[in-house]
Design a protein around this nucleic acid. Structure first.
Lengths: 237, 237
DNA sequence: ACGGGTTATCGACTGATAGTCAGTAACCTA
DNA sequence: TAGGTTACTGACTATCAGTCGATAACCCGT
């Protein structure tokens, strides 16, 4: 409205990343704090402008390099592109969001303006970043059900209890360790390494250690209901 | 390469739509034929440039209005954003693709340069449009399994046989009508209208007619495996 | 070395779901 | 009314997830 009042800036494009990690039994997201501009004081997703000679994927990787060691990113996928005209006041900026995941045993040092925040208690966030964060969390939770995406949250080697704690934090509700182990074994997502955990300080039986069979995303085909008759549902059929 | 030779045009953005429909037992996609330019002769997805005062959703809707009656679109969702530097030669154009669905009983007249093409035998297509089309088909097939997205492909009222034919064409493999009906009824996606089909020209028992309970997308929560203990899996629990 | 505490593992049971199929029902035409 | 065609129903089976009690393997202190 009132088109002569404020000229619309040429369409611009930014990338944003929802980087999630489970640590201390909590699912948390990487945020940095605006120190100036229209959203001063608010927390924001890492990201920045898309350069003309970058793909979106390369752009988000280079933007993230300023915040975390990108080698720690165990998974990165495109989430969605936001285009609401008023998502940032006075300007027109498209944002393509990515979902990044970090294993729970990675504890790198962060720049001073950057912190992890529990997704269960997000701070005041800039623009539509809170909404984008929730999209990322929804995507993660959905994919934990029907893919092997747990590999991106878990350490290379883990026990059933450790994995149960990670899934519980990521999903936000209780998870049975027995059931989780049986499901992931049946789907051939995890395999035993043959090793055992060192018995804990407080005693207790040493636990069998597992690893994810692959560290690339795979979809559980069991979830393709109404499957063709020649593709039996059973894995051991 | 050779940066002085051809200046890179400022980042531009287009929208594209993968519009799918089941007709005559075949899943097909709406394409139009380039009559000039670098991709002359190739078939392309409908779309066009994103204007500075449009959201992506409004842009794709207005672009589609030139090809089909937009009122026939029973579903429209964002698919993905492509950013490969060489996806269009000599220029830099981001493309945000949408997935649109049309019920199988809609047979509107198309402009002269526009045709439906079976996704099982795609023609030579411009740029990365074939790859984007396959993304759309994959998304549709996945969502048919774990959502009520069938509503967007089916007529308002249908018999079990008609729905079976639609799912079979969309999924690309055989589907049991008995099983399909039972699954969708159990999930409360479809309900009987109380009416019966007129007995066909060749005889046969009249079929019970159904409709989708809602025409907005809903996710089958049964697919949230590892669900919290207080959310029983049963619908009638 | 033995018993109690702790953590881990295993096996059995139940209920829900999907895939299949044979038998029955309801229509047509001749 | 018989035979052909399409639709519907119920039963059977296999798979899978959720639950729980019983057992195993470790710690420590006595």
């Amino acid at each position: 409205m009132s088109p002569g009042k404020k000229p619309i800036v040429a369409t611009d494009h930014e990338v944003l990343a929802v980087v999630l990690q489970v640590a201390d039994d909590v699912l948390r997201v990487l945020l940095w704090q605006h120190d100036r501009g229209p959203a001063a004081g608010a927390w924001a997703l890492p990201g920045g402008p898309l350069l003309t000679d970058e793909t979106l994927g390369r752009s988000v990787a280079s933007q993230l390099a300023e915040k975390v060691d990108v080698r720690h990113l165990s998974h990165l996928e495109q989430l969605e592109t936001r285009s609401d005209l008023d998502r940032i006041p006075q300007t027109r900026v498209l944002a393509t969001a990515y979902l990044g995941l970090v294993p729970s045993d990675e504890r790198s040092v962060l720049p001073g303006d950057t912190q992890w925040h529990s997704v269960a208690a997000l701070p005041t966030m800039a623009f539509d970043h809170a909404s984008i964060t929730l999209s990322g969390v929804r995507r993660l939770r959905a994919k934990l059900s029907y893919t092997n995406l747990g590999f991106a949250l878990a350490p290379a080697v883990f026990t059933a209890s450790e994995l149960q704690a990670i899934y519980q934090a990521a999903l936000g509700h209780e998870v049975s360790a027995t059931n989780l182990k049986r499901i992931l074994l049946r789907r051939e997502q995890i395999v035993a390494t043959g090793t055992h955990s060192a018995p804990g300080r407080t005693g207790g039986r040493p636990a069998v250690e597992y690893r994810f069979r692959t560290r690339h995303i795979e979809v559980t085909d069991q979830f393709a209901v109404l499957r063709p008759p020649d593709q039996p549902r059973s894995l051991n059929g």
